[in-house]
Design a protein around this nucleic acid. Structure first.
Lengths: 367, 367
DNA sequence: GTGAAAGCGCTAACAG
DNA sequence: CTGTTAGCGCTTTCAC
């Protein structure tokens, strides 16, 4: 393993030599810490500038036990929800002079463990946990200090744990009420895995409202967060006696899978079946998709999560903090045919008619 | 800044004490380096196990000047191309016991500089540069050792630089020839920024084939990689005297933007205008999109890039290596109406006809 | 105000 | 085969 060694720049000793002071004085100047005589400070600063000296984070980390490194744990970077979250997390972290590492867990606790073990040894300072895996125990085991972690996207079980999540149940309630209000009675919920507490909360909200509406035992399909699951569930329900007239997917990705599968079967959305998602990813707003959804304000959630984490990291004994953010229902063409439907009527060259074309109503209306 | 200090686990000294040997012996055992008597090794190993000792990467990095940390520079994690690339890069890096940090440059050289400065100080070992920004000079300035960087996605200018890229020109040529072969003469190319060498190569391939076909001055719209740009260019060309009958977008994201804009105007794809992309992102295969594209085999590209980088990192004097990977044309409904068109004929509830439904031909055929 | 000295946890000669 | 000895580059008492 004769690997090339990183060339190092000037060290604190070089600066000290040049400025004719001790290293401790240089250290003080660099950290603008204790009192240093103005003149000395100036001399040291000049030496720093002329050498282009920059302190080594590695050495600092060795001494301080801190790295200004945060990890963002996501389920699947290929699910558009996570890149959106990642961008906002990264941006906010940058403002606090932290760097973010993105880690894909694939919702497997073993991956959570792998990353955490590795990065903690590497000197990780904190974790933004946006993955929904059944791994809370692992996190608490590896990071017993609750202040170093903030859960987002899904609420944690541990009452001590810090989190920034959406009002998942409330959002699902709003959405369900809306579907009932436009006349749907048979509504199917394409759910996520039962270890995902955000998915569970959404199902609960749905169930609650349905029960209130006199539909105490609505259709619910458990599964994972894959588009395939969405597609399969949507199709399976076409075969049953009284197929649902509306579907709610546990998130936009699953909704997209359902939409694709429905299209594949030649079904019309929203006329044959209405469809809604949850998250509010950008893609859902595309005219190709035009999906009714519950907006989590992903950017805000990411920003808030970082703020909360940095606050906890910043003081010695501060308690953990938590936030529940409101959601917003976005009604689009996939449930409301007076708006543009998910898909314009573009038909193959031979046969089939084309629609009126152009816009049909506003593309979207907030709840 | 009274920040909580990371609790540290047992150190090498603890192990040495327990095993009644010197730290160097422990170090040897840990690194399975020099010869250690079996009995000693066993004793040390027992101590390691009982203490649950794990060496500190930070201290190692301080001594070795290496961290087993790689950075993946991407233009925009929200462009589906990059998450797909990131997954394969991450996976391959994991196999070599490296950890990958994903960095968004937004295609701004200043961001490249920011990340690189920061991470190099942090002890970054190598860089997979998949962002296409005009920042090659910055990279070479900050990382003069060419072995520490591999460019992917876009070919670098520096002849010494290592890279793993697709045959961008060739892919564009294949695509253009295909469009000509199905009868298109007026083809518009929605290009990217001129600082992006991959985009430039694609335009060149396009121009070459068009010239050969007797269309020496085809439509080309320069711009950025945004979906907006795709939409605007596609629309703008509807207004000119002889609008193109086919469009090629510099990548799938731009193509998606164009598709959305065309739909928005009530135009039919591929009948009013055919549309193709470049990249081969998963979304392009969706029945909602069904986009003809040039497959870059993103996963393979990411894997190869990591391999090349790790090889260069691994030996002291090995020369830099480079690879150009072949592409594959994927013909789908956005250019071939005998396949399923991008959008099934789903029309609003009132008015408009619905299509035959079900599949129309194979969803896709390789070139 | 400033400096000297002792590490942080590990690796890497160099001796035995 | 194994131990001793220097550091890696920085922070941090504790003196002066």
């Amino acid at each position: 393993m004769s690997v090339p060694r990183q060339e190092r720049g000037p060290t604190i000793v070089d600066v000290a030599d040049l400025a004719q002071v001790s290293v401790s004085t240089v250290s003080r100047v660099v950290r603008k810490h204790a009192d240093v005589k103005d003149e000395t400070r100036a001399r040291v600063q000049a030496a720093i500038d002329s050498l282009g000296y920059q302190p080594s984070p590695i050495a600092r980390a060795l001494v301080a036990g801190r790295t200004r490194l945060l990890a963002l744990l996501v389920s699947d970077i290929a699910n558009p929800f996570y890149p959106q979250l990642a961008r906002s997390v990264e941006q906010e972290a940058k403002r606090g002079d932290y760097t973010v590492v993105i880690c894909n867990t694939d919702d497997r606790a073993v991956e959570t463990r792998r990353y955490l073990e590795r990065l903690l040894l590497q000197g990780l300072d904190g974790v933004i946990h946006a993955s929904v895996s059944h791994d809370e125990a692992v996190v608490h085991e590896l990071l017993p200090d609750r202040r170093r972690v903030v859960f987002t996207n899904r609420p944690p079980t541990d009452p001590q744990a810090s989190y920034v999540v959406s009002d998942n149940a409330g959002g699902a309630e709003d959405l369900t009420r809306y579907l009932l209000s436009i006349g749907h009675r048979r509504i199917g919920f394409i759910g996520g895995p039962k270890f995902a507490t955000n998915a569970v909360a959404r199902v609960e909200g749905f169930r609650r409202v349905m029960t209130e509406a006199g539909e105490p035992d609505p259709l619910v399909a458990e599964g994972d967060f894959s588009a395939e699951h969405g597609g399969k569930a949507a199709i399976a329900w076409r075969e049953i006696p009284h197929p649902p007239t509306a579907l709610i997917a546990v998130n936009d990705s699953v909704a997209l899978g359902a939409l694709e599968a429905l299209i594949d079967r030649g079904l019309k959305v929203p006329d044959d079946v209405a469809l809604a998602g949850f998250d509010g990813v950008q893609l859902a707003a595309s005219p190709l998709v035009n999906l009714t959804t519950v907006d989590q304000h992903i950017d805000r959630m990411g920003r808030r999560a970082v703020r909360v984490l940095l606050r906890q990291l910043g003081r010695r004994a501060g308690p953990t903090a938590s936030e529940v953010l409101p959601t917003q229902l976005l009604v689009r063409g996939s449930t409301d045919s007076t708006l543009r439907p998910p898909l314009q009527g573009l038909v193959p060259g031979r046969g089939g008619a084309s629609p009126a074309g152009g816009r049909k109503g506003r593309a979207e209306k907030a709840s």
